[in-house]
Amino acid sequence: MTAFSGKRFMRSEGSLAVKIAAAAGLAFLLAPLAIIFVYAFTTEERSFVWPPPGLTLKWFGVTWDRPDVWAALMLSVRVAAVATILALVLGTLTAMAVSRSRFFGRDAVSLLVILPIALPGIITGIALRSAFATFDIPFSFWTIVVGHATFCIVVVYNNAVARLRRLSGSLVEASMDLGADSFQTFRHVVLPNVGTALLAGGMLAFALSFDEVIVTTFTAGQQQTLPLWMLEELIRPRQRPVTNVVAMAVVAVTFVPILLAFLLTGADEQTAATTK
């Protein structure tokens, strides 16, 4: 926190240029999301004309009555829920093992957990598809879940590891000295301390799964999650205003887990967990 307290450099003319560049960069990051909100109200149906010729609420009603949107949404929510639970269990256990001791192959374990997200998603996707084909596994709800859980483990793992590193070992020792066994210590000392980090990791895993499209294209078969529905509309548009409304709703919903994850863990831990 005390980094960069150099007053002299701050007053120099160089810093103004840096601040302007940073402001321009932030505008670049946020403007496209703001534009999504404007287009949801446009009266224009066929083109992406700017500025919108008029504003209307009509398309919210039309979207609400579309069964295909609801079906895709429900499938996405179910997949994300199951994948998140799997990732929570697997990610937490691995994080505890890695943070509690140094053992042979510890770096290899970290690498294996990170690999599904470090390699391009298309590799995970086509690898899973070729495995399903080789072993004659038909596409189902579970083939989507398997793919999602595989790359969600790392999000939970990173959040849990970041928090477990901060958890003082003497707390655990004190608990054991006072007569608690390992399970009681986990239940009453470790879990309350890492709980919010797990909740944050779980929410981010949910968001990651809910949004995933690249791996899902290869593991869904004929099923349609919300991102696959969106992709279909991007490539072969049917009713653009409905897509606009769905896009806006998705951005609005994403606010919630990000804000909650931030409030639960703080900016520094999130920056550390996301980049690790």
């Binding site: 999301l33 999504i36 499209v213 969106m230 896009a247 998705v250 994403t254 996301t274």
Partner: peptide, 9 residues
Amino acid sequence: LPLWSSYLV
């Protein structure tokens, strides 16, 4: 926010 917003959006 842009990091976690839907990729397709």
